[in-house]
Design a protein around this nucleic acid. Structure first.
Length: 289
DNA sequence: AATGTGCGCAACCGCTGCTGT
DNA sequence: GACAGCAGCGGTTGCGCACAT
């Protein structure tokens, strides 16, 4: 352990990726598929280390990545999962395959952590939890859920495609479009309202639907009004860090609860909290605004 | 209009764990 | 079993932008 894998070779380029580099990387992966990252710089001539190539692909160029603001449903799910799993961003991201772990991590660090801290300050003395790191996650889900469709979400004001940055790095979501037509299961482009977009859940849930939890879809449909059936793209787009991803590698180790149990827990908690009185939810929810 | 400040996010760094030899 | 190489993960950094003053 402790071996340095840093890109410390002479000639290795750092910093933002250029469009040309992206194109090279994308076209290489089109031919060979993701993986075997060590061979990527060697075979493409990219002056980037393998790690950088992998990161660029998984966090940015990989097709199916959803960019833009997080919906309140996603936000609630992240908070809930974070309280369950801790900072296991890859595990959390497996429940939102359209989001990268990096995105989720950034969003947590820049938004949600502050919200929760604010909430904890606001509710200090009222909470019965002795663990300050655990916010009643289902309550948050309920709170967010309560706001779905209300149209007052500051996150849903902008369409995800409305990215204002003019820098190349911020506009390369378009790179994904380069890949349309080559994937085995091209993405279904379904224009949905930001707050209704929970297709991502279905992608991962498909695995469990087939393996161990047939009723899960139905339960989730009840939990999430905008539930959509899983799409066929799951096998590919979920490959970033999905526990049951296509490469067959185990993603969850013994530190993590089994997915089935986790999902049941999520649903049970959420279902309970949906029954909370609206007044109580209202009294809490303004702490998140 | 110029400057300061805070925020968002892409990218990097160091570490862990898995796999092959 | 020990070791080495690699992919992946989580924490952190630094740049660029937006907004406030």
């Amino acid at each position: 352990m402790g071996r340095s894998q840093c890109c410390d070779k002479v000639g290795i380029k750092r910093g933002p990726w250029t469009q040309e580099e992206d194109t090279i990387l994308v076209s290489y992966i089109q031919k060979h598929g993701p993986g075997n990252w060590r061979s990527v710089p060697a075979n493409t001539g990219l002056m980037r280390c393998s790690k950088s190539c992998r990161l660029r692909w998984t966090n940015y160029l990989r097709p199916g990545i959803k960019r833009g603001n997080f919906t309140q449903s996603e936000e609630g799910l992240i908070i809930h999962l974070q309280s369950l799993l801790g900072n296991k961003w890859a595990a959390i991201a497996s429940y939102l395959p359209q989001r990268t772990d990096n995105d989720i991590k950034n969003y947590w660090n820049t938004h949600l952590k502050k919200k929760i801290e604010k909430h904890q300050v606001a509710t200090n003395g009222r909470t019965t939890s002795s663990d300050s790191n655990i916010v009643c996650p289902a309550l948050v889900i309920s709170t967010c859920h309560d706001n779905i469709g209300s149209g007052n979400s500051h996150h849903s004001d902008l369409p995800s495609s409305d990215l204002s940055s003019s820098s190349y790095a911020s506009s390369t979501h378009n790179i994904s479009r380069l890949l349309q037509g080559w994937t085995r299961c091209p993405p279904k482009v379904q224009p949905t309202a930001p707050d209704q977009d929970l297709t991502c859940l279905g992608i991962q849930m498909k695995v469990d639907q087939e393996s161990c939890h047939p009723p899960f879809n139905e339960e989730l449909k009840q939990l999430v009004p905008a539930w959509e059936e899983p799409s066929a793209e799951a096998s590919f787009y979920g490959s970033q860090s999905t526990p049951a991803c296509a490469d067959g590698k185990k993603r969850f180790d013994t530190q993590n609860p089994p997915l089935a149990a986790l999902e049941n827990w999520l649903l049970d908690e959420a279902a309970r909290q949906v029954d909370l009185s609206a007044g109580y939810i209202d009294s809490i929810s303004h702490a998140f605004i």
